[in-house]
Design a protein around this nucleic acid. Structure first.
Lengths: 148, 148
DNA sequence: ACGCACATGCAAACTATTTGCATTTGCGTT
DNA sequence: AACGCAAATGCAAATAGTTTGCATGTGCGT
């Protein structure tokens, strides 16, 4: 997404275009995996020459979340929340319990189920989070050799 | 579940039967909803005449989780983790964003999907967590009157 | 009933996240 | 292009959930 597209996006949502916000949004939109606030902070510290405070990262993520640009992913890594771009194409992930690798899943297995659920419960269904855990092929190999 | 059943269960899993563990297990097995460690602590403080430390609650939940008796539910309430009895009949919940009410869902919409996913990704699928959010009938009524 | 390993209580440590306040920055206006 | 104000950021300190070290207490096999 180009620099100007992001500016426009921000403007359309009433988000002031600051350097920090721009960097975080750009970074997140390239990421295919949910990521923690701290990781964002670290990467931006190293890669970009900007300095940015960790609390700013949290505040920006919060702003983005409220404006619908980003969402908390529901996947917690060692007690830390993770965030990802709010893909308009609804998406889920498969998390490896061995190495924490995260891969996106194509398609949503709950298509159609939500409306059924809404009808049977009377709830107005808003959203869902699905997290599937497993052991990735790489870690399966490793485990065969060791006993851990 | 009777007192003795729980003792047996503990014994079969190598869990020493203490008063605190018993109380927590009994309480959790009656609960139909995931609950936070703090809530467990509060309820047991009030209802039972036992005193129990919050850190003990955490430790017991941890033990239970490792032994497979309990699981972290994946639903976080205001930043707090929630726990529930590990129902052998795999279960999901519907959470109301208005009042935090949680209701269990009958059946799992992912039946069958896991094996498909395992085949297509090479992952060995272990488990999944599904959280669905919506507005319950009660809160839907309320919202119609107010503007919040 | 005894003794030991394990569980608990208590307080302090940790860690992720939030917040108050002074300073800086973006952006509409002149 | 400069000005001014509201909003954003940096910094440090506060919160809050969870964990941990250590002294004491308790379950359970002998």
């Amino acid at each position: 997404m180009s620099r100007d597209k992001i500016r426009e996006l921000f403007k359309s949502r009433g988000i002031k275009n600051t350097q920090q916000r721009h960097l975080i949004y750009e970074f997140l939109s390239r990421k295919k995996q949910p990521i923690t606030a701290e990781e964002i902070y670290m990467v931006l510290l190293k890669k970009e020459k900007t300095k940015m405070n960790l609390s700013t990262v949290y505040r920006i993520l919060d702003t983005f979340t409220k404006k619908g640009l980003v969402q908390k992913s529901g996947i917690n890594i060692e007690g830390k929340s993770t965030y990802e771009i709010n893909h308009m194409d609804h998406r889920h992930h498969l998390v490896c319990t061995g190495c924490n690798k995260i891969i996106p899943i194509k398609g949503c297995p709950l298509e159609g189920y939500e409306s059924y659920l809404g009808e049977t419960t009377g709830f107005e269904i808003l959203e869902h989070h699905l997290e599937i855990k497993g052991i990735c092929p790489d870690c399966q190999k490793e485990t065969n050799g060791k006993d851990k």
